[in-house]
């Protein structure tokens, strides 16, 4: 297939988001034909020209601040219309909350074969073959998306960001959609931007150190934080910890919290309820420190230390500091 591809970008601080740069790379690898970009919302017009820096010669912008505060569904119609206008047979976006919402809508509004959370994609005659982790990373499925309209959402961090290769970029304006009352009635009443701690954020970090019930008291959580600080790691927590209010729910790793897949995950005093496991099992290397040798966490960990975390963790922090010369 020699598809034209449309990349639906996301904006971050008025610029194309890092995840969008990854999507552009995938689009350029897959598309036999032209690649066009599209961004929506306030500041779209200014950001759209950035597509040119990454080798995309044509971009569309729907510069309408109303879209930022409208339900996700309000974007489906203009995106589908743009896809038709550029003659796209392939649409790509990042598998973020907004990206998944968009794809669910486009499966119907653009009548496309769709897949989210994609970590590998190759084109074949008649469609796109994708691989995606399923069952919380316990398995991977390969599926063929067939038909003349295919839309995929790529998992952030799964692909390298495209390198800069500037070309001139023509920006077309997309007319703002006339929203029906169903889409104007909902109101966004507030946006609280998450305050970031000193360390990296849970989802971005290449090392995560999490503490669980075994830490026993909120004041002991500093042991976990000190180890994380020594490693430059993000701090996570099991549900037992966030339920007990020792740390806010934004720290929670697991099914009801955040799914993380860092290079190194260190579980401190976490027994390893399946709830937690599914949120971290796709980490590359897992270390468990727990006093109970029969704790299920040792079944998924690569390395384990059975022992008293109150002795092991400070020793480990000291050793890390010593080795890193800090």
């Amino acid at each position: 297939m020699t598809p034209n591809a449309l990349v639906v970008g996301e904006l971050h601080d008025g610029h194309l988001a890092a995840s969008t740069l990854e999507v552009i790379g995938v689009a350029r690898a897959l598309a036999g034909g032209a690649v066009a970009g599209l961004v929506l919302g306030a500041g779209a017009k200014a950001a759209a020209s950035e597509f040119g820096r990454f080798g995309v010669p044509e971009a569309y912008a729907l510069d309408d601040p109303h879209l930022d505060a409208a339900p996700a569904g309000a974007r489906a119609a203009p995106v589908a219309a743009t896809a038709r206008e550029v003659g796209a047979s392939l649409l790509l976006t990042a598998s973020t909350t907004a990206g998944r919402d968009l794809l669910g809508r486009l499966a119907v509004a653009w009548d496309a074969a769709v897949a989210t959370g994609v970590t590998e994609a190759t084109a074949f005659e008649g469609g796109v073959r994708v691989r995606r982790p399923v069952f919380g990373g316990r398995a991977t499925e390969t599926i063929r998306l067939e038909g003349s309209r295919v839309a995929i959402a790529t998992r952030p961090h799964a692909f390298a960001a495209v390198a800069e290769s500037p070309v001139p970029c023509v920006v077309h304006e997309v007319p703002a959609p006339v929203l029906s009352e169903a889409y104007t009635a909902p109101q966004r009443t507030g946006v609280a931007v998450t305050a970031r701690g000193a360390g990296p954020s849970l989802t971005d970090a290449s090392i995560v150190v999490s503490g669980g019930r075994g830490v026993r008291a909120p004041e002991n959580f500093r042991l976990v934080e000190e180890l994380a600080a020594s490693l430059g790691a993000a701090v996570g927590a099991s549900r037992a910890v966030t339920d007990a209010g020792w740390r806010p729910t934004s720290f929670q790793v697991g099914q009801t919290g955040r799914a993380v897949s860092p290079q190194l995950y260190i579980a401190v005093g976490i027994s390893g309820a399946i709830q937690h496991i599914v949120g971290m099992v796709s980490s590359r290397v897992i270390v468990a420190i727990n006093s109970d040798a029969s704790a299920p966490i040792f079944r998924v960990a690569d390395y384990g230390i059975v022992g008293d975390l109150f002795q092991i963790v400070p020793a480990l922090t000291a050793e890390v500091r010593r080795v890193r010369g800090a």
Partner: peptide, 17 residues
């Protein structure tokens, strides 16, 4: 883990999701 059903349902039922 697709997360597609709510949005697809919204589009099919013509309701915000």
């Amino acid at each position: 883990e697709s997360g597609l059903v709510p949005a697809a349902l919204g589009e099919l039922l013509r309701v915000p999701e």
